[in-house]
């Protein structure tokens, strides 16, 4: 199995791994929370994905690390930023993609790409977790919901409240103030999603909004957010069940190109 490569994406909250085989087929994947020992988390991510692919570690010919913990993927042969990896991954899943929007646990990125999946320009939120996955976690907690429920609940809203702040630090008090004013949690959730969409749009505008737009990162699994973003943009956004793995997938694709005779 010499044509097997792996991409390991160590993000701020989760570690993901994708195993690719001949024809760039996804053979296996894994997703685990990251703890304090990033080196171990990276190893576990690879092991779990290898198992998922019913392979053994020695079958993997090339490993690429990406994400904030990319330099801790000691067993890897290549390190690429998640910006390049999301670009590559989005181009692979949706070749018409010109703009990638990635909302992860602690940051948001807008990446403009060309037809080859190369980065043309990018913008990221600054040293602040406003409007990211972490913000939604805190809001879900404040409303006593599971984070998996908030997207579907937001879609049932009738009169979305107007939320102005997406500050993670003040999220709890913001939510509590709406609850104490008797607002329906579904309407609060719809307002929260819409405010993140607005904030994300301004980031996207910095690099230029051009369809197709592919939405990636953990928050892309939230259907309320997919809806809010599409509505704000006026065009639907691409999402895939693999969206959360796009960094790891892109890393694997970068690795694939390094294999002798490799072409994704």
């Amino acid at each position: 199995m010499s044509g097997v490569v792996a991409g390991v994406d160590i993000g701020s909250t989760t570690a993901k791994c994708v195993i690719l085989g001949e024809g760039s087929r996804v053979l296996g994947k894994s997703l685990n929370p990251v703890g304090v020992d990033i080196v171990k988390d990276a190893e576990h991510a690879l092991e779990a994905a290898v198992q998922d692919a019913h392979l053994s570690r020695s079958d993997v010919a090339f490993v690429t690390g990406t994400g904030y913990g990319r330099y801790k993927v000691y067993f890897g042969q290549l390190v690429v930023t998640e910006i390049s990896c999301h670009a590559r991954g989005a181009n692979f899943l949706f070749p018409g993609t010109r703009l990638v929007v990635d909302i992860g646990g602690q940051d948001t990125k807008a990446i403009r790409i060309n037809e080859r999946g190369e980065v043309v320009d990018f913008a990221m939120n600054d040293k602040c977790a406003a409007g990211t996955g972490r913000f939604l976690d805190v809001c879900a907690n404040a409303l006593g919901c599971d984070v998996g429920e908030i997207g579907p609940l937001s879609l049932q809203a009738r009169h979305a409240v107007k939320v102005t702040s997406t500050c993670t630090v003040f999220a709890e008090s913001e939510v509590t103030s709406y609850v104490s004013r008797g607002k329906d949690p579904k309407d609060i959730l719809a307002g929260l999603h819409a405010s993140i969409a607005s904030r994300t749009l301004s980031l996207m505008q910095r690099v230029g909004v051009e369809p197709e737009i592919t939405f990636t990162g953990g928050v892309s699994q939230n259907e309320g957010m997919v809806h809010a973003l599409g509505r704000r943009l006026g065009v639907p956004v691409n999402v895939s069940p693999l969206s959360q793995y796009l960094g790891a997938l892109g890393a694997a694709l970068h690795g694939w190109e390094r294999l002798p005779g490799g072409a994704a």
């Binding site: 904030y68 690429v80 930023t81 998640e82 910006i83 390049s84 940051d107 190369e118 980065v119 043309v120 990018f122 990221m124 600054d126 040293k127």
Partner: peptide, 12 residues
């Protein structure tokens, strides 16, 4: 974060 941006920029 700064390193990430720099790395991505030079990669591109």
């Amino acid at each position: 974060q700064i390193k990430n941006r720099m790395d991505a920029f030079f990669e591109s």
